[in-house]
Design a protein around this nucleic acid. Structure first.
Length: 120
RNA sequence: UGGGGCGGACGCAUGAUCGCUCCGGUCUUUGGGCCGGAGAGGAAAGUCCGAACACCGCAGGGCGCGGCGGUUCCUAACAGGAACUUCGGGCAACCGGAGGACAGUGCCACAGAAAAGACACCGCCGAUGGGACGGGCGACCGUUCACAGGCAAGGUUGAAAUGGCGAGGUAAGAGCUCACCGCUUGCGUGGCGACAGGCAAGGCAAGGAAAACCCCGCUGGGUGCAAGACCAAAUAGGGAAACGCUUGAGGACUGCCCGUCCAAGGUUUCCGGGUGGGUUGCACGAGGUGCCGGGCGACCGGUGUCCCAGUCAAAUGAUCAUGGCCUGCAGCAGCAUCGCAGGAACAGAAUUCGGCUUACAGGCCGCCCCAAUUU
RNA sequence: CGGAACGUAGCGCAGCUUGGUAGCGCACCUGAAUGGGGUUCAGGGGGCCGGAGGUUCAAAUCCUCUCGUUCCGA
């Protein structure tokens, strides 16, 4: 298994899975976004991204989703382990660039970054 | 050289590392691994038109409603495109508009006399008839009044006032007459046609608006891939088909009518419905492109060649380096090089095509027009 | 993805059908009344009708494009 792979099995894809996390998860409020986490019992964490249409046009929404997904792929350790996580973007989301998103998530979860991950 | 018009193509490149989706091959402990290949646009957008395709008890007739509107052609079709006609704008290249207002109904506020088969407020005249005064024996003549009457030249309003301009004519005037222009009608010529220009006659009839209703011509059944088809799981609350015996309320086809059909109860037969999944529809097509031929052109025909995203909380990305582009600073008399900092548009496939419209940093190419300069 | 509706004063709405003066309520300002405030009475200000273009003598109204908001559909 490659270290930074992100297959579709690591993403939340069904409406029911999203609703489960929203109902049972713990909410963390960040700058312009909301992190909802819920223990899943599975070995790896899974990520779901929610971007409302009010955020902007399709290009901007796709840009945000790719940014968040890339952060999750490269810095899995700053997210809670063995959990289903929903990254809910709010319309006032202003972060741009990989480093800004990583720093905001790390501050929110309080988990330390691994050196080899950051070096990659 | 400067300014402008029309059209076309592009819209970061290369490399490395880490990732995502699909296809092919191969290995496999059936989890997946490895190798190779492919992976957003000119607008993918807005959803404004037109179609394909699918279903709707298979959509028939009449009325209504909607869309389009110079002509001819292209096209599967179109509100699209091409060529041409005509009117308007521009010195020009070029750009923009387009059926009918003597079929009918209604509208044209305010102002103005009058706003649509004209009218007469100010005004002009008062020839003819009439009144008054004067002259004359008289027939009658002169002056005056503005009563009857004649007129619409000039003025005033307005976005718009019922042919224009000039001359003749008259009491004053008037297409009343004449020339030119406009208009109408007729004839024949050229053109497939819109229409063009020619001749003759009439003698002035006619305002705007149809993106008001409307008339004429052409055209449109409805709903849309969340259309629709299939599969497995799970469950009994219902559903479907046939018969056409009874009823004729209600509903569907189209908004209404006709017409057709469904329908409720009954009998018989069959198995589905909600919710959430999977497969399919779904990517070879009115397809792209090279060459040849036809056509002024849009486009068409022949032939060779290519296969070119296929997702579903929705893939096509991230980081770094190098190079090119643009902007600013420093530097310089100025340019180039070099240095530092920053920037790189509009925008993301969602059933698929043909158009239209809108957004767009930056530069590139071709043709044409105007002005200046040089020869 | 498909289908609808609405943008008018600070706020909530008329006016659009059939084109010529933009109006109503609350709010705001001034004055009267009160010792003061509220209520009440009288008067007043505030709009380029979401934006651009077109038709027309004239557009909030008719036509086209565009921006924004809201609703419905498995």
């Amino acid at each position: 298994m490659k270290r930074f792979a992100l297959p579709k099995s690591s993403l939340l894809r069904k409406s029911g899975e999203f609703n489960l996390v929203y109902r049972q998860g713990r909410r963390l409020r960040g700058p312009g976004f909301l992190l909802v986490c819920c223990g899943s019992g599975l070995p790896g964490s899974r990520l779901g991204i929610s971007v409302p249409a009010k955020t902007g046009c399709a290009v901007r929404r796709n840009r945000i989703k790719r940014l968040v997904r890339e952060t999750f792929r490269l810095h899995r350790d700053i997210f809670p382990s063995s959990s289903d996580i929903v990254f809910a973007v709010r319309p006032e989301f202003t972060l741009d660039g990989l480093n800004e998103v990583r720093a905001a998530v790390a501050e929110l979860t309080g988990l330390p970054e691994r050196h080899d991950a950051a070096a990659a």
